[in-house]
């Protein structure tokens, strides 16, 4: 099976998993304290996990781009950042929606909230830097460096709930020892994590294809032998000038 044949397969798998995850989130046991509101967890936690994964992929792709100078790594890095920024925004939005009824505010001075917002801003700057640079090699090199530096924030975001006093609950799944969660809820959460990861893979795959198509179009434009606009005008010859 060729790579292009596999693409619809990934899309179908991602869509099916998402639907199953959505159904699981609706059928999962209701939280005793927060009620149905807690079901936001099935979107909020996988989104946060995807943000970590996306930026980790960008880190690896950025290091690989600097080492090998192959453009495919740059395509992967930027594609992963774009998808990661979307999932970070989703994490912030769902967190804010969850925070209002539980904490009484949309936003508060909380280390997890603030560090996640800063993470979002730095990766927006990453996309901004790329947009401002025309030369593909310079663009790939600079964004690879920023992709590596920006990743420093991920451990800070994850550990912020441990290092500082915070309203946000400490880790319940990614922590030493047993996860502190009902087994059925944990199962649905893990299903949604898998579904979101498959969606991430499908989205990144599509975005890499677009990046390659863009690069090919850029190359074709630069190396094309087709006539330029100015070619229609020819300079007058010496004789023509003298005749006038």
């Amino acid at each position: 099976m060729t790579t292009s044949n596999r693409r619809p397969l990934i899309d179908v798998a991602a869509a099916s998993l998402l639907l199953t995850g959505f159904a699981g989130a609706l059928l999962a046991p209701t939280d005793r304290l927060q009620g149905d509101l807690q079901r936001l967890m099935y979107v909020h936690v996988p989104s946060a996990w995807l943000a970590y994964l996306s930026f980790a992929v960008t880190l690896v792709a950025s290091v690989a781009r600097l080492r090998t100078r192959r453009d495919r790594w740059d395509d992967l890095a930027v594609s992963s950042v774009e998808v990661g920024v979307f999932f970070t925004a989703l994490t912030l939005a769902t967190g804010s929606l969850w925070g209002k009824p539980v904490w009484g505010v949309w936003w508060t001075w909380d280390p997890r909230l603030v560090t996640t917002a800063l993470l979002f801003l730095v990766y927006l700057a990453y996309l901004g830097v790329r947009r401002g640079i025309v030369d593909p090699d310079v663009r790939a090199r600079r964004s690879a460096i920023l992709g590596i530096i920006a990743f420093v924030q991920i451990p800070i975001v994850h550990m912020s709930v441990v290092w500082w006093r915070t309203l946000h609950q400490p880790p319940t799944v990614l922590k030493p020892g047993q996860p502190s969660m009902d087994t059925a809820m944990l199962g649905v959460l893990l299903l949604n994590v898998v579904a979101f990861t498959a969606t991430y893979a499908a989205l990144v795959r599509r975005r890499v294809d677009i990046a390659r198509a863009e690069a090919a179009a850029e190359d074709a434009l630069l190396s094309d032998d087709s006539p330029l606009a100015g070619d229609a005008v020819t300079a007058p010859t010496h004789v023509e000038v003298l005749d006038v």
């Binding site: 800063l118 801003l121 700057a125 901004g128 830097v129 947009r131 420093v152 924030q153």
Partner: peptide, 17 residues
């Protein structure tokens, strides 16, 4: 880059937290 004056604070501000 043309947007340098706004990009530099956007990179610097979060990372200097």
């Amino acid at each position: 880059t043309r947007t340098r004056s706004s990009l530099v604070p956007l990179i610097v501000t979060p990372l200097t937290l």
